[in-house]
């Protein structure tokens, strides 16, 4: 399976995402924001960072970049798309996911290992998790407060479209402790925390077993591989 990772000017975690893809057992394909070519990949990742300096609004300029037209078309065909942090902001700006992300309610950048509950385990990126699995992966953002109008929140909750919820602490003021959401089809998923930083022992969050041994993020990528295997 080939998973594309798009690099935008200001992307920071594109290499980490490529590495996570390889550790999960797929081929990582580097894609460039200024092109229209998806190189025939089977799934797509929009990585974290500060694309285009976060000018205008986080993810707004990236959502209008040349490759985004192809990504929107691919998403609408059912190709799995994962937006991480800045990538989640791009998906919201591109209207592939509802709601928006605003500055953290406490006004500060936050960087911590964050506990989450996986609320929806039937998406292309979460099918490998046990129902209601509790995981810990890094979170690092300044504008991660998820908001939407009351009707949208009710629909997200009612249709089980909340994919991840913050546990123990709401780090940014997100409504209903929402950390990530999915579209109804389950192929487009966005979240603020970073699964690609928790894929290899020695470099992940601390666990009860050992320092930096957390690899809860790896399941995102193996889930996409499993989804692909059942689709072909």
């Amino acid at each position: 399976m080939r998973i594309g990772v798009v690099t935008f000017p200001g992307s920071l975690d594109d290499r980490d995402a490529q590495r996570a893809v390889r550790l999960a057992g797929a081929d990582a394909v580097a894609l460039w924001h200024g092109e229209h070519d998806l190189h025939g990949v089977d799934a797509l990742i929009l990585p974290g960072g500060f694309s285009y300096g976060d000018y205008l609004r986080c993810g707004a300029i990236a959502s209008l970049s040349p490759i985004m037209a192809e990504i929107i078309a691919a998403a609408n065909r059912g190709v799995p798309v994962l937006g991480i942090c800045n990538g989640f902001q791009m998906l919201a700006e591109a209207h592939l996911l509802p709601g928006g992300l605003i500055r953290n309610n406490h006004g500060s950048f936050v960087c911590r290992d964050q506990k989450l509950r996986v609320e929806n385990t039937s998406t292309a990126w979460t099918n490998g998790f046990a129902p209601a699995a509790e995981i810990t992966i890094p979170l690092k953002n300044g504008e991660g407060g998820f908001i939407a109008d009351a009707d949208t929140i009710a629909r997200l909750e009612g249709e089980n479209l909340v994919a991840f919820r913050y546990l123990e602490l709401n780090p940014n003021g997100s409504l209903n402790d929402i950390a990530g959401i999915t579209n109804a089809r389950g192929n487009v998923v966005g979240l603020m925390p970073h699964p690609e930083h928790a894929v290899e022992e020695g470099f992940g969050p601390d666990t009860a077993a050992a320092m930096r041994s957390g690899t809860d993020g790896l399941t995102f990528f193996t889930s996409a591989i499993a989804a692909f295997a059942t689709s072909v």
Partner: peptide, 9 residues
């Protein structure tokens, strides 16, 4: 459609 995001602004 570009300079503002109606969800937040």
């Amino acid at each position: 459609h570009l300079l503002s995001n109606g969800v937040i602004e």
